[in-house]
Design a protein around this nucleic acid. Structure first.
Lengths: 191, 191
DNA sequence: GTAATTATGTATTGACCAATCCAGAAAGGC
DNA sequence: GCCTTTCTGGATTGGTCAATACATAATTAC
């Protein structure tokens, strides 16, 4: 019927997501993207519409991947405290390894406040984290790991907020000890 | 000796800081700044050097003002729990009133990772919050408001991290209840 | 093989960007 | 009044931006 596309859209999305993640929306120019994806502008606009639309798809992909990871960790770990640590420690490590990267949701929330679709995705992402944590905490409470007088939703909202904080101080380069001290206090909220 | 400057540098700095705060670094063009400050480009570059240098001065001003407010609240409030609430509740309220504004330090940390002077100011700002909180917590411990087996520095690092998280979820528009639930759990860390 | 359709990449568009230039204005020294 | 100095703001610079236009290449249907 017609000429077939020479590049893999999903691979391109992954690469674009990674570039936005590293450089941020404003600092990533179209030329940067074309170079990274090794395609021309014709192909770019035919496939993605615009830089803004591509960013939206990348953000969607990011939150979907992050949500999947979170769900997997929470579902696959017996003890809730171990599970929460399994979620948070890799974040601390990631920020130590590469402080420029951070979290795409956090940077979107500060950079794209004027773009409605991005703002909506940020809200959804935070709500998703809240809801996954709340579910895991409820189950842990049923298992008796969490005191019956705790409120799982409150705890989930607290942990969600704390996670965002960890991503910020991670980028602030305050070091491992800082984040680990904060984490050890936060963990006691579950007791 | 020579012609005197027709605008007040400090007033201009305040207005510029406010503009950067509302729109972010990348989204604030030089024309925006010139219009906001009601000056021409000649005066601008004579007074501030460059957009980047101006941003740095605005950030310095912001952290200095925020630090002063924090110190004042902590010093001027007898009970540490009341003091911490007095710090956090207005932040929650501010994010509800104007979710686009957020915190200049948080947005700088995600936007200006490549600019060394900005990154350094972010680190300093976070360290300053940590240190002010640690001082207040130590005093509270001496007064007997905080259990002797608590570590003030750990608590300060925790609260500092949590504050950054509050600023992020504030921009994520998850609503008042979310932030207040998170806060009520966080406060129990002091018990 | 020809027509129809879509992908590709270069060249180009108009807008905007931060920053500089420069001619003139305003101030004080003498 | 004149000279020196600094401020002022419009005009201009060179560069980059996202996006489009278009000629060409590749593919399938028939």
């Amino acid at each position: 019927m017609a000429r077939i596309r020479e590049f893999d859209i999903d691979r391109a999305l992954d690469r674009a997501m990674d570039l936005f993640w590293r450089k941020g929306y404003a600092e990533t120019s179209l030329q940067d993207l074309l170079k990274e994806l090794s395609i021309g502008s014709g192909s770019f606009y035919a496939a993605f519409g615009s830089k803004e639309q591509l960013y939206d798809r990348c953000l969607e992909r990011y939150t979907s991947l992050q949500g999947g990871d979170l769900r997997e960790t929470l579902d696959g770990t017996a003890d809730i405290r171990t599970a929460v640590r399994k979620v948070l420690v890799p974040m601390i490590e990631a920020d130590l390894t590469d402080p420029t990267r951070g979290c795409l949701v956090v940077s979107t929330s500060t950079q794209c406040g004027e773009q409605p679709s991005a703002a909506e995705r940020v809200t959804t992402a935070v709500r998703q984290v809240e809801s996954l944590l709340a579910g895991a905490l409820e189950q842990a409470q049923v298992r008796g790991e969490i005191s019956p007088d705790k409120n799982p939703r409150e705890l989930a909202r607290f942990l969600t907020t704390f996670i965002q904080g960890i991503r910020v101080v991670g980028q602030a380069r305050t070091g491992r000890e800082f984040a680990e001290d904060a984490l050890s206090v936060a963990m006691r909220a579950l007791d």
